[in-house]
């Protein structure tokens, strides 16, 4: 479904700020894989997501989605295949538009946007049904401005918008990190539900090790632009947070404090 081959990316090359963000990254995701990504700050987690989404163009290597080479494809064109939820609850929705307008916008992922009415009766009905899944009562507030919703509600809506428009790949960039524990649980729960229902190929970055072990069928750990651990299936299921910390500790030259990892 998704294949990254020999990806290298260096930011600000040949300058004093030169930083290797990705070094020889190879990653292949099968259809329906749910992969959690962990690693310290600056490990390259976000750069991997941005490379897949088309925000970052790799210096070398190729990105292919469903067998199609998309390395040079612009981000907004690639959006046809890739759905995203950002860390900031404000980032995934348009605050001045209403809930239904946001959903109408999301629904046309990768399609032509012509001069047909954005909101119609049948769309409203469909959106209301989709929103019911969230169990937040948003289906009764279709014409409310999204800017009036709380962070948790907005993030749940972002998740719904990113997924109900049927992308091939879902990218989650610490999408529960900015929420309070209760809301974070709700959004995590919704994520698992949606991913399972739609069998989405998913890549989820998280700072929460317990969460990384709990959800998904595969886990990768990154450090200094490289994938240093890749476990799946039963091997992953058997792992504990302590195992992961031990893995981290075993990496030489790595000065990572447990606190930054467990925050």
């Amino acid at each position: 479904m998704l294949k990254l081959s020999n990806i290298n990316k260096t930011f600000f090359p040949n300058s004093i700020n030169e930083r290797v963000a990705l070094a020889d990254v190879n990653l292949e995701l099968a259809d329906g894989d749910f992969v959690t990504v962990i690693g310290s700050n600056g490990a390259g987690k976000s750069t991997v997501l941005n490379t897949i989404a088309g925000k970052v163009t790799p210096d070398t290597g190729t990105v292919s989605i469903a067998g199609k080479n998309v390395t040079r494809m612009k981000d907004y064109k690639r959006a046809k295949y890739v759905g995203r939820v950002f860390q900031d609850p404000m980032a995934g929705t348009s605050p001045d538009l209403t809930i239904e307008q946001n959903m109408a916008l999301a629904e046309r992922r990768g399609m032509r946007r012509g001069l047909a009415f954005g909101i119609t009766k049948s769309k409203r009905q469909r959106f209301a049904e989709e929103l019911e899944v969230l169990e937040l009562g948003l289906e009764k507030r279709l014409s409310a401005k999204v800017g009036l919703l709380s962070g948790g509600q907005r993030q749940a809506l972002s998740l719904l918008m990113a997924t109900f428009s049927k992308p091939k790949i879902l990218l989650l960039d610490e999408h529960t990190a900015a929420l309070d524990p209760e809301r974070a649980r709700l959004v995590t729960h919704l994520t698992e539900k949606v991913v399972a229902e739609q069998r989405l190929t998913t890549l989820m970055v998280t700072h929460n090790m317990a969460q990384a072990l709990e959800v998904g069928n595969r886990l990768i750990m990154m450090h200094e632009g490289r994938i240093i651990l890749d476990v799946a299936g039963e091997q992953k299921a058997a792992m504990t947070v302590d195992d992961l910390l031990a893995q981290f500790a075993s990496i030489k030259d790595a000065d990572i404090s447990d606190r930054t990892l467990l925050q």
Partner: peptide, 24 residues
């Protein structure tokens, strides 16, 4: 109020977000 118009409204509101849904 059209599909294109909604894309235009959102462009002034949250550029990153509309791009992530395939709007140029």
């Amino acid at each position: 109020g059209t599909d294109m118009g909604l894309g235009l409204q959102a462009t002034g509101d949250n550029e990153e977000m509309v791009r992530s849904f395939g709007v140029s």
